[in-house]
Nucleic acid binder design. Structure first.
Lengths: 150, 150
DNA sequence: TGATATTATTTCAATATCAAACGATTACAG
DNA sequence: CTGTAATCGTTTGATATTGAAATAATATCA
């Protein structure tokens, strides 16, 4: 799906690369969503549980930083997870501005139940590329992701 | 930001590549959003206007297909664009199920005003990679994006 | 100490997003 | 020709998402 933009060769290359990158990522995420690897959890909720599971309890602003989401959003996602009894809020003791969010036993069980299947789905999707291609793609993404906005 | 998952080497490679891909794309999109290259338009609204501008009028389900969005979502985005007088709905004549969506003059002017700046921002962001790297990234994304869910 | 700045979270309004259910319309099989 | 199936758009309900404004707690510094 090339762009219909008529610019210099350099401009067309950048635009086409951008489109391929975003579409590949979006369609990959859509295929993963269709597999329903984390039933009963939204993608955001799964992201929070996974982060807490692998990195341990942390405050909401730190979660927002890791998941690239706004503070208001994290408040709502944690609200819904809390309603379902999957996470626990605890006001900081030394610095009472912070709220430490941690997994409940139910939350830990939930993420442990679904994570292996999620990983398996990712592995299957990524298997469209050879290992060498995966390493290459990772390196390019790393370089692009670190780019500074001028 | 490597994963903390302890699997086989192959599993870790796939997972890390996946994480790098999604994070690079998300942070790139976040940097573009910060540049505010399409003021007064949400990303979805901009996507619709751009699609109509480059591909001409089309019905809502086709828009949904191109933008990878659900039908209900397209209805709302078109609603908001119509409120602002940027697009126009027209019921199909032969097949009355379809609704053809087209740009109004105001919509055309709007997209023509902001599109060059948007392209420029993308070019600047993509310049973190050499032309060769961009071609390589594009090819890998193309291969990954086409992958079939097994 | 006290005014001010910073940080963390919440609230709110607007928009986005999906899935499921629904009504209108068309296609098609019998 | 007729009824069933498929398609399109809309609606609804739940959650997501952002940005801005409001709150609360802490830190800083004069």
């Amino acid at each position: 799906m090339p762009t219909h933009y008529s610019g210099t060769r350099e401009e067309v290359l950048a635009l086409n690369t951008f489109i391929k990158l975003t579409r590949a990522t979006e369609s990959l995420l859509a295929r993963l969503a269709q597999r329903n690897t984390h039933p009963g959890l939204t993608t955001s909720q799964f992201g929070v549980l996974e982060t807490l599971y692998h990195l341990g309890p942390m405050c909401q602003s730190e979660l927002g930083g890791k998941l690239l989401k706004s503070g208001g959003n994290i408040t709502m996602v944690i609200d819904n997870l809390e309603k379902h009894g999957l996470v626990h809020r605890e006001r900081g003791i030394e610095d009472r501005r912070f709220i430490s969010v941690s997994l409940t036993d139910a939350g830990r069980k939930q993420i442990e139940d679904v994570f292996p299947g999620h990983v398996q789905a990712i592995i299957e999707e990524m298997s469209a590329l050879t290992h060498e291609e995966q390493r290459s793609l990772g390196a390019l993404c790393r370089k692009l992701g670190k780019a500074e906005s001028s």
